[in-house]
Amino acid sequence: MSRVHDVGGQSGFGPVPLDDDGLPFHADWQARVYALSGALRSRGHFNTDEFRDAIESLPVQQYLSQSYYERWLAAMENLLTAKGLI
């Protein structure tokens, strides 16, 4: 089914936000989320496509309103729970 992440060509997202400061993370928790996803994948607990699937499966309102690493966090919580790993 068509999912919210599939935004190529969609209108309404406004101008590109150019306020980039070059920093990879803007809070320590974002770095921790990045580390968790990388370590869990390299240990084989989920693969990249399972992770993408979990991100894309977030409720539409949640996907659109949350920041990038908030989506990652919610997706990991859902995926690890669904797999019975936590």
Binding site: V7, G8, G9, Q10, S11, F13, G14, P15, V16, P17, L18, D19, D20, L64, Y68
Partner: peptide, 9 residues
């Protein structure tokens, strides 16, 4: 910005 919905769309 590369990760933004605006750029991606």
């Amino acid at each position: 910005w590369y990760k933004s919905l605006a750029y991606r769309s």
